[in-house]
Structure formats: structure tokens, C-alpha cells
């Protein structure tokens, strides 16, 4: 049995070698740079980063945007996953295509399409003035709201699919059993459906949060240089400032947040799933 297992686990070797060479090694080298300042090895780069209010502002904005994006994606994805789990045949195909096809479109095309909708003389502003909701055009492009909406749009499939996978596995007679035991629709949701689908929510939230905290193209296109995020700071450090220490320091901080989120969510998913 052990010999057999070992032989099968050899199949992971190509992936491990690939990841080690292309991902882990360069990343380690990059992180090592963050500890090498002009005055020698140390954590001075980190102290410097955290003592600048501008950087703290960018860090907080990045986390806030990622949290809001995750929340918005969750609110849209959760009911969608239930509708998908109920659908079958042609409707399921329609759902999946509608979800996956936009991923192949690319963020650049999407961002320019949004600008048609959101700009000052765009369709949404014209409509809101026409129905009398607003008296003049309001600013929607280049705002944090636009960024959150755009990011949630792009990352939606990463929230829907894990939740859908869990909902699909749900025993359909559990809500019936709860109802026959006297549970109101709300009690059924809070005590049966929600706890049983939480592992999917945790997985989806971890995906979307990790993606949004490190996104670069979407904020560059939607909010531009006006409101920097961590990834934009990294790019600026490397590309314009040519400050490798600063760039790798910010990278390390971003990586630490992403690792913490992934570890926490796998721990949470493990706890939630342990009993089932």
C-alpha cells in the first residue's frame, strides 16, 4: 500500500519542480532583498514603510477594497449558486457559460466597456438624470466604488463556483426535515442551509480576497494613479523608482496578508467540515 501510494505521489514531482523553479525560488530571492537596505541587513525597510502615513493609507485602502469586493461578490454569488444548483440541462449550461465566458474577455476590454456605462456622459448618468434621480452627472469612474464593483464583477466566478459545488452536494430533504420539525424559513436558513454551505463561502471568500488584494490591472484601469493600491505601489517602486528594497518589502507585506488569509480560511473550512 505504501509503495503504491509513493509511486502515485511521484506524479506530483513535475508540478513541484515547476513551482520551485518558477515560483518559490524567485519569490525567496525577492523577499531576501527586502531585508537588504543601504545600511546593510535588517528590518529598516519595514520600519520605514510603516512609519509613512501615505503607505498606511494605501495598505488600508487595499484591504478595504478587497473586503468590500469579497462582500459584494458574496452577496451576488450566494443566491446565484442556489439557482444554479437547481438548474439542469440547458439552463445549467447557460449559467456556466454566462459565468465563465466573460473570464476569457480580458479585463482591459471590460474596463473600457464599463467606462461607456459609468463616465460623466455615460449611459447610467444619462438615465439617472432622465428619471430625475440626479440633477447633474455624478462621478463614478475613478472612484473606489467603481473599483469594488468592477473587481467583484471580474472575480464573481471564483465566488460562485465553490459555493455552487457545496450547494450541489446538499441533501435536498434537509430543509424539508427542518420544516417538518417546525422550523420557519429563516430558522431553516440560519440553522441548516447556511452552516452547511459555509465551507463553500469560506473557500470562495479566500479566492476573491486573495485575488482582490493583489490585483493590479483592474485598479490601474479604473482608478488610475489617483488612488494607489499595494500592487500599484510595488509596480511603481520597481518600474519608476527603481527601489528594489521598497518593492520587495511591499511584496512581502502583501504576501504575508495573502498567506494569513489562506491559512485562516483552510483552518476555518477544516473546522466547519470536520463534523460532516
Amino acid at each position: 500500500m505504501i509503495a503504491r501510494l509513493d509511486r502515485i505521489s511521484l506524479l506530483a514531482v513535475p508540478a513541484l519542480v515547476f513551482l520551485a523553479a518558477i515560483y518559490a525560488l524567485p519569490l525567496m530571492m525577492l523577499l531576501a532583498k527586502s531585508f537588504q537596505g543601504p545600511e546593510g541587513t535588517g528590518i529598516s525597510a519595514y520600519i520605514e514603510f510603516f512609519s509613512d502615513p501615505y503607505n498606511l493609507n494605501v495598505l488600508w485602502r487595499t484591504i478595504r477594497v478587497a473586503l468590500l469586493t469579497t462582500l459584494l461578490a458574496l452577496l451576488i454569488a450566494y443566491p446565484t449558486a442556489f439557482a444554479m444548483a437547481r438548474a439542469n440541462g440547458i439552463w445549467l449550461t447557460v449559467f456556466l457559460v454566462a459565468l465563465v465566458l466573460p473570464m476569457s474577455l480580458g479585463v482591459v476590454v471590460k474596463a473600457f466597456a464599463w467606462s461607456i456605462l459609468f463616465r460623466a456622459n455615460g449611459a447610467l448618468n444619462e438615465f439617472m438624470q432622465w428619471i430625475g434621480l440626479t440633477s447633474g452627472p455624478i462621478r463614478m469612474m475613478f472612484t473606489e466604488t467603481a473599483l469594488v464593483v468592477g473587481a467583484a464583477n471580474v472575480f464573481l466566478p471564483f465566488m460562485v463556483l465553490p459555493i455552487y459545488a457545496v450547494v450541489r452536494q446538499l441533501n435536498a430533504s434537509l430543509p424539508d426535515a427542518a420544516a417538518s420539525l417546525g422550523a420557519t424559513p429563516l430558522f431553516r436558513f440560519t440553522h441548516v442551509t447556511l452552516p452547511l454551505t459555509l465551507p463553500g463561502v469560506v473557500a470562495g471568500a479566500a479566492f476573491v480576497f486573495s485575488l482582490s488584494i493583489s490585483m493590479y490591472v483592474i485598479p490601474s484601469l479604473i482608478v488610475g494613479e489617483r488612488q494607489q493600491t499595494m500592487s500599484m505601489l510595488i509596480a511603481r517602486s520597481f518600474l519608476y523608482l527603481r527601489d528594489e528594497t521598497l518593492g520587495s518589502t511591499i511584496s512581502a507585506i502583501l504576501l504575508a496578508i495573502a498567506v494569513a488569509v489562506v491559512l485562516f480560511s483552510s483552518w476555518l473550512a477544516g473546522r466547519l467540515g470536520a463534523r460532516q
Binding site: 426535515a177 420544516a179 420539525l181
Partner: peptide
């Protein structure tokens, strides 16, 4: 009357026990 107001208990074929509860 909806099911939850009938006070009629059901034992399901697959028992439908809640897997997340003891």
C-alpha cells in the same frame, strides 16, 4: 398551512439527519 405550522413529524427515507449537528 405551511409545513412548519402543522406539528406533523416526518421520518425520511434517508433519515435527513443534520450532518453538522451531533
Amino acid at each position: 398551512l405551511p409545513a412548519h405550522k402543522r406539528n406533523i413529524s416526518v421520518v425520511f427515507q434517508n433519515y435527513a439527519l443534520f450532518p453538522h449537528l451531533t
